[in-house]
Nucleic acid binder design. Structure first.
Lengths: 186, 186
DNA sequence: AATCTAATTCGATAATTATCGAATTAGATT
DNA sequence: AATCTAATTCGATAATTATCGAATTAGATT
């Protein structure tokens, strides 16, 4: 997931850290100076600066006793362009979006009790529904045709069609002529 | 203070809220759908959507039973331009920056013990230092010239110059010819 | 080498907030 | 009118994090 993106926004999601960035936009400051300006203890300011450093917004240069922090203009420039762009947001859903389409189709075709209103005619929609239906079978387990029909009847009365399509799309397999069915691992 | 700015960043400083925005960038979703996709309870998603609505990033439209949320493209566009701009950051320091210049000058001219390295020659810097020095006097209290010199000697050996400038810039006043001194309220 | 000074790290605490379940609300649908 | 459904609100709890003081560290300065 875009952990980096979340960290970036979190770094700016604090009034005092925004003030630090605002101050550093004017000139560089030491930790002590910032603490005085913000009415915070140096240890607290250190904590904030660490978060800002982590996302590359500021950097430190040691100068005699002092640690002088300055704004990283380039990083800021770059982020400004990137940020809030569609790209960034789509990376945020990398681990979610996978079966969005399936879900949409399934909810469209399902009643509250989980049964199907109809069996979709369009190939893409049919596939989505079949991927959903096949989850009712345990992987590895073998089922007789009677058992298969029993389970499928929970989805639609036309169990024969469902069974045929499941096999046709390779989601279930059948042993020889009249043998058992089992769910194919995806 | 730019409370609005903080709220905006806070609204995006959460992985699940970023995912919601990412999803809504694709199409509109109901609360239930989002809850299913994010594996959260509807009440939690409601909470997140409330935060996003507050900053104007999303909006809801009621549709039969459902509350369908969509991304506010215009708001997003506008924010993209504004955000991370210098303007925004300077608003963040509205309530801080007031005496930044004074502080800078004072630290530049002060030793650790609080005494002055030199008395500034430039008018702006001198004013800043004098505003600092005058704080050593209690408002309302009256001081003899001897007492004044005693206090000023903590800043610089040339107490006469300091005394003269303080009066000259109107920060302290003197009663008649050889009377007492007092600090002028600002 | 010994000392000073600012910064950082660490541990503890207070404040904030994400999450959930239960209760309530608002809007269709029957 | 009664019922149903999804959404919201409310209260409680767990998780996160801002803040501080004390201890430690790192780098000059004496």
């Amino acid at each position: 997931m875009s952990d980096e993106l979340v960290s970036f926004y979190k770094a700016l999601a604090d009034a005092n850290r925004l003030k630090i960035v605002g101050l550093l936009a004017g000139r560089a400051y030491s930790v002590e100076e910032l603490a005085a300006l913000l009415k915070l203890k140096p240890s607290t300011v250190s904590h904030h600066l660490a978060k800002l450093t982590q996302v590359g917004l500021v950097s430190a240069r040691t100068e005699s006793y002092y640690n002088v922090y300055r704004l990283e203009e380039k990083a800021l420039e770059e982020k400004t362009r990137h940020l809030l762009s569609r790209e960034d947001f789509t990376t945020a859903i990398e681990d979610v979006d996978l079966d969005t389409y399936d879900r949409k189709v399934i909810t469209d075709y399902s009643r509250k009790d989980g049964s199907l209103k109809t069996i979709p005619a369009q190939r893409k929609k049919l596939e989505a529904v079949l991927r959903h239906v096949v989850k009712a079978f345990e992987p590895g387990k073998r089922y007789s045709e009677k058992q298969v029909n029993k389970i499928l009847s929970g989805f639609h009365e036309d169990t024969a069609s469902l069974r045929r399509e499941l096999v046709g799309y390779g989601l279930m397999k059948r042993e020889g002529g009249g043998g058992d069915y089992w769910r194919v691992e995806s």
